[in-house]
């Protein structure tokens, strides 16, 4: 194990981090072992499966391919940062309602990648959902229920926006300190 000789300063799920870490470790390992955020998973360790997906500056990245030193000064959000005060992100809620989860190993990455899509496109087609989840592999579900959950989440958020409400189910009670985009 290499030395923890690098002072990492970044934000994770909105919280400032200031911690001595191994700069050469994979960000995946730093998140899991040092910050105890075990939502991101290691499937392949080589960028193929997307189980380790997190947000970096609002974009989905494979944390197994980011070296910890590269997170310096950047904004990270993991699956743990997506629910708000115990209320699930719309996409998470729809994964529950559509029964899109079997073993669950791929799901944190799927949810992050899907959120990235909905941040860019509020009315994605099935084709666009498939493209956006092209970097995520699920060996259980066959994907259909995952796609359905994402499309349904998009529809719900569009409806909420039309009604002039916060665009996420979790934000509905209206007592949150920050709009959802700031947390990504």
């Amino acid at each position: 194990m290499a030395e923890k000789n690098f002072r990492l300063q970044c934000t994770v799920n909105g919280h400032p981090i200031d911690k001595m870490v191994d700069p050469t470790a994979r960000l995946l390992d730093t998140l899991r072992e040092e910050l105890h955020l075990t939502g991101c998973k290691e499937g392949c360790g080589q960028g193929e499966c997307g189980a380790c997906t997190i947000f970096m500056d609002g974009k989905p990245v494979d944390s197994c391919l980011v070296m910890t030193i590269q997170a310096q000064g950047h904004r990270l959000v993991t699956i743990e940062g997506m629910a708000f005060e115990g209320r699930l992100d719309t996409i998470q809620q729809m994964f529950v309602e559509e029964a899109s989860v079997q073993c669950g190993f791929c799901i944190p990455g799927m949810v992050v990648a899907a959120r990235a899509l909905l941040e860019e496109k509020e009315d994605p087609t099935l084709e666009e959902v498939r493209y956006a989840l092209g970097g995520n592999i699920c060996r259980c579900t066959g994907y259909h229920k995952i796609f359905r959950a994402v499309l349904r989440a998009a529809k719900i958020e569009r409806q909420l926006r039309l009604e002039g409400k916060p665009s996420q189910l979790k934000d509905l009670p209206g007592v949150h300190p920050a709009p959802s985009a700031d947390r990504l």
Partner: peptide
């Protein structure tokens, strides 16, 4: 190139 995660980086 790759998927979204690869293209982000």
């Amino acid at each position: 190139v790759g998927g979204p995660q690869i293209r982000s980086r």
